[in-house]
Design a protein around this nucleic acid. Structure first.
Lengths: 136, 136
DNA sequence: AATTTAAATAGAAATTTTTTTCATCTACAT
DNA sequence: ATGTAGATGAAAAAAATTTCTATTTAAATT
């Protein structure tokens, strides 16, 4: 948890019980969740937290690099805990069965400055797969 | 348009006026749009189309490979016309200023079967940048 | 330890986005 | 021409997200 606390502080943000509770949830379940999921679990397991706070905090924690934004084209936001010890550039590979998130290193896109005449500003890569456990 | 008509037919779907109208809109503006955008333009420029039909058709056209799903983390869906003459595997690069979409070839991810022990099922890559015109 | 203050919070309400339902209609294969 | 699976629109509902505001709180400063 100290790791996350530091990250929050380094971003000039406050370490609040809500934020710790949200990180805790992700730490325990290790899958990706929607704001609604978080809201439900906060009510069950931890202190209550208003839905607007959930939205704000998920977004803030994502900006701190603590949470990863997960892309699914089902019109919901998903977030997952970003398991990366160092702060190195990376993306994520998601298990479509259990939801586990693993870091995906070795992206060579961020080194390039231009592609097809476009000046590169940002990029997003996500791989969906089936993790070792779920393959059996 | 014949190119698109064939794609729709090849997917066992009907070529309806609505679908042609939607493709027409994308063909004229060449940027990425939300379902709401499409709905508005259909009312203005082409025949009217109910909002549910817009949602359904955008999704259907995306599955045919005619439209590309664009990822923005602002909680809206975006679609854009996929300008790729052949059916080769590719992704997209988006201009964050004007919204233009260009194909991004040379993805080497889809060749790999496994990464980090994960069996790869799918992957998504998107690059955001500024196109030649908008750089000036 | 008390004070201060900018940031964070909850809760309600409003807004926006998306989906469902269902009766009707249509593209197109036969 | 006709039959049929697929497509459509209208209305309604559901779901997701944001706004607003009064209140509370973390943590820096006394």
């Amino acid at each position: 948890m100290n790791f996350y606390v530091d990250k929050i502080k380094n971003n000039g943000l406050k370490v609040t019980p809500r934020r710790k509770a949200i990180i805790n949830i992700f730490n325990h379940c290790r899958v990706h969740l929607t704001p609604e999921d978080i809201f439900t679990r906060l009510k069950e397991e931890f202190s209550h937290c208003g839905l607007p706070s959930v939205y704000r905090n998920l977004e803030i924690l994502a900006e701190c690099g603590i949470l990863a934004r997960i892309y699914r084209f089902d019109n919901k936001r998903y977030y997952g805990l970003c398991h990366s010890a160092d702060g190195a550039h990376h993306h994520h590979i998601i298990c479509i069965k259990c939801g586990t998130i693993a870091p995906l290193k070795g992206c060579n896109l961020f080194k390039r400055k231009k592609i097809n005449g476009f000046k590169i500003i940002d990029h997003f890569i996500q791989v969906d797969g089936i993790c070792k456990n779920c393959q059996e």
